[in-house]
Design a protein around this nucleic acid. Structure first.
Lengths: 267, 267
DNA sequence: CATAAATAATCATTGTCAATCATTTATTTT
DNA sequence: AAAATAAATGATTGACAATGATTATTTATG
């Protein structure tokens, strides 16, 4: 076995598991400890892994250190004020006891806070939303089954036959990467797949998008504007965009970020 | 077991509950008290946890509302030593990469700590197990869909068509209320329903029961003894019970709570 | 103050590492 | 093609670090 091949195996093993020992790698590769150590030193110098006593560990930076696993650390914070106001307006649309669907996303995640004092039937494909509502509210929580995708923090099943089809709600709330004349746009095929399953499982499709989303463009069109019933956004929306939504017969709700009430406009 | 691997497990355990004792960590990791103390000192110096008398505590103060949302607060603690040892033996049966099913329960929950340093494909109907593994390990997590029942902390769907049927595993691990000549017994019809769905979705059915479960009686029989392939229990098991299991052709593994290795007996 | 638990300190044992050198394998030179 | 050279590998050894057991010391608790 040659150097490259061995190192490829070592990297594979170390990514497969947080830590691997020198002895384990010897068994896997059939090489001697001396060789494995030399490989580990080399790969460590290339920053492909971390060398530790007894073996190697994957390089994943702050796997544990900085309060691991908190939901979507980065996106979470941008336009946070608007997102909060929008999410609050969304929750205020609902009555206790109603069944709703919340699609995963950073804007929809903000709904958990106003939902904490409610008692609704919430169906979601977002693990963090379920986690938060379960621990901090009395809502009934229903979850879609499947694999948990860590990056997008959603649960996705490649199969047609999951519980999703058995849940029908008064409203479905979802975010989006962008919203324009072409319709609702997303940036990730995985998310499109998840959302396609849920669209159509409710009376009313409500889109939560801060006003910056009207500028965003993306190649993946999830559905045309005509399928959207309501859009909740902030007061940064332009008259032109409002007119476009009105033309598509979409109900528009503008959430005031600073103050209290939401106001219905147009239709 | 090596330093990093052990320390990952310790961090996993300390996130799970406000405080963990040195003795508990010994059982989970199989290391000596001296080593655990040295690890705690090191992790404390790295600010990964707080060292306290008797063990360690999570660095994030009282997470949220006191004890709220902590998994199954009461049952969690009874026979905890045996449960930990049994859970460790269960994880040691598995190889990385293997698909396994973990049915929700207080004993099976203890598997999360030894699993923290592994990378397996875990299918579960337990929200706390999924939550912990998602936040503190690199395992692939798959979840069954349905409603989250807060009391039992499991996810249950009344429908036949959920992803459960699409997952087939090498082993399925489950606890039980009781185990006797009549078979596996449970105390709650809801749990029976959940478990019935999962039984048969694996090559090998492994039962995790501490020895007190052999005395327990219940009215709900989940399945006959013949369907069980392996039982893992502690050294409190009587010869008579061991003989009963042997007669039913069940493989028996006795996990030593104090020391290191598990030993297979009979069969 | 007495007792038990937890911790610290010590030491023998084991496991891991770096350095060295012999051997094999690959590459270049003749 | 053969010989010479270079590189990679595996084995050996002494140094060092980690571990577990033992014993002494400290700390909590009644």
């Amino acid at each position: 076995m040659h150097e490259r091949e061995r190192q490829r195996i070592i990297l594979s093993a170390v990514q497969d598991r947080p830590v691997v020992t020198v002895v384990e790698l010897c068994i896997i590769t059939g090489a001697s400890e001396a060789t494995i150590r030399r490989d580990i030193v080399a790969l460590d110098a290339e920053k492909k892994l971390n060398r530790i006593r007894g073996g190697a560990e994957s390089i994943t930076p702050p796997q544990f250190g900085g309060l691991a696993g908190r939901p979507f650390s980065v996106n979470q914070l941008i336009n946070i004020e608007q997102k909060r106001a929008i999410a609050r307006a969304a929750v205020e649309m609902c009555d206790d006891g109603e069944p709703i669907i919340i699609n995963g996303g950073t804007t929809t995640f903000q709904m958990v806070h106003p939902l904490a004092s409610r008692r609704m039937q919430v169906f979601t494909n977002s693990f963090p939303i379920a986690e938060h509502l379960l621990n901090h509210s009395k809502n009934t929580i229903m979850l879609s089954g499947g694999t948990i995708y860590r990056e997008q923090n959603i649960i996705l099943s490649p199969f047609e036959n999951d519980v999703t089809r058995n849940f029908y709600a008064r409203r479905m709330f979802m975010g989006a990467k962008g919203l324009g004349p072409l319709g609702v746009m997303e940036g990730d095929p995985l998310i499109v797949q998840a959302e396609e399953k849920l669209i159509g499982q409710s009376d009313e499709l409500v889109l939560l998008v801060d006003s910056s989303k009207f500028e965003a463009r993306s190649s993946l069109v999830l559905c045309p504007l005509s399928r959207v019933d309501t859009v909740i956004t902030d007061d940064g929306i332009t008259d032109k965009t409002a007119a476009m939504l009105e033309a598509a017969d979409v109900k528009l709700i503008v959430a005031k970020s600073g103050a209290a009430q939401q106001e219905g406009l147009a239709s």
